[in-house]
């Protein structure tokens, strides 16, 4: 039984990780949900199994460990709350960009391009091409 639960948790983690590596926000959110469920399952399996822990209904040594169940309940509520927030954010992002893709960081692209520009300049020096080439100003392109 607990092997089955462990395998399910592993499967959820695997699928969630794959989805998290995608570029579409909707897939990432589903991925977060799956990975979160995987962790919750893992937390449940960490306790002792047994009958429902209600005092007076059975022998106390046969009780399931109630603590992980209490913990996982908190975990579920938190994951639920954050996922809701994430959905709202994704909707906002869709309203603003009309797209579902995770965008690149513009500043980061500018910095990245600076290296390429340096190389270009060096190439020009070697070839000694006189004037006329329009070097794109990196900072000017930064303006959105």
């Amino acid at each position: 039984m607990s092997v089955l639960l462990a395998a399910t948790a592993a499967l959820l983690f695997a699928m969630g990780t794959w989805l998290l590596l995608q570029r579409q926000l909707s897939r990432i959110i589903i991925g977060v949900g799956l990975v979160g469920h995987g962790a919750n399952l893992l937390l449940i399996t960490s306790g002792r199994r047994g009958v429902a822990p209600l005092i007076g209904t059975a022998d106390e040594s046969a009780f399931a460990d109630p603590l992980p169940q209490a913990l996982v309940l908190t975990g579920i509520v938190i994951t639920f709350g954050v996922t809701t927030f994430l959905l709202a954010l994704a909707y906002r992002s869709w309203l603003l960009t009309k797209g579902d893709e995770v965008e690149d960081d513009i500043e980061d692209r500018i910095i990245g391009r600076q290296g390429a520009l340096d190389e270009e300049v060096q190439d020009h020096d070697v070839a000694d091409v006189p004037g006329g080439d329009t070097e794109p100003e990196p900072a000017a392109e930064a303006a959105p």
């Binding site: 893992l42 960490s46 938190i78 994951t79 954050v82």
Partner: peptide
């Protein structure tokens, strides 16, 4: 998203520790 992944890993670590 990155904070959530850290939280999920944290939860897993708690499960293992428990």
């Amino acid at each position: 998203v990155i904070s959530l992944i850290a939280s999920v890993l944290f939860l897993s670590a708690i499960a293992f520790a428990y």
